[in-house]
Design a protein around this nucleic acid. Structure first.
Lengths: 109, 109
DNA sequence: TTGACATATCAGCACTCCGTGTAATAGTCA
DNA sequence: TGACTATTACACGGAGTGCTGATATGTCAA
């Protein structure tokens, strides 16, 4: 595949700035190992904090902190377990996840 | 859509840690407004540093700095313009971009 | 060759953010 | 109610990162 450079010799200095606000916001959330691990684990279904903390080798309060970030962004949701109500299970918000994915893919199209 | 929680009452503390190294690396690059803007602009074709700096409202050396980061990651490539060799044009490395996209989508599947 | 232009590199500073430790709160179970 | 567990809140210390200004490299034109 040959490199296709513009034939015009002069750069265009009037190009519009692309809107990447949604993409950078989503990327900032994914840029952390713990948060990315949480989201990846939740692909397979809901998990409680202690499960994810154990799998990721992080402390509960730390994982809970990152979950709060993801919750504020609307990517995950907390649901209390019915049979054993001590545990708070987290699950993804599918529309929000799809929107974040679309924003990222738009930059890496 | 009903929430599907595990029927077992006890959490599983032996779950494996997901591998998200590639996703976090890609996300860290996209988490910056300038870098994300660069990558988004390069979707439409190659651009030189001054073009992107003008569009993004950033200084040339700053944009050049971020381009170096993207270059080190293998996402972009620098090509000197043939007719006007003062200008360094940047273009995306498609396979690398596809790999980054795949790593991110794996987390937000 | 000289000067102007485009890009690259680097050190320094300021700022943000993560992980930790501690404490406090909330909820459940006996 | 009281004990226990899970979750949240907050401040601190350290690491990482972006922006800047100065400087170096390379190209074109006069």
């Amino acid at each position: 595949m040959a490199t296709m450079l513009p034939v015009v010799g002069e750069p265009r200095l009037d190009l519009p700035a692309p809107d990447v606000a949604d993409a950078t916001a989503a990327a900032a959330l994914l840029a952390d190992r713990t948060r990315a691990g949480i989201l990846r684990m939740l692909v397979d279904g809901p998990h409680c904090v202690c499960e994810m903390a154990a799998a990721l080798g992080e402390r509960d309060n730390n994982v809970s902190n990152h979950l709060a970030r993801l919750r504020d962004a609307g990517l995950v949701r907390a649901v209390r377990h019915e049979a054993n109500a001590r545990f708070m299970y987290y699950e993804r918000d599918e529309p929000a996840v799809a929107a974040a994915r679309a924003a990222l893919v738009d930059v890496l199209r």
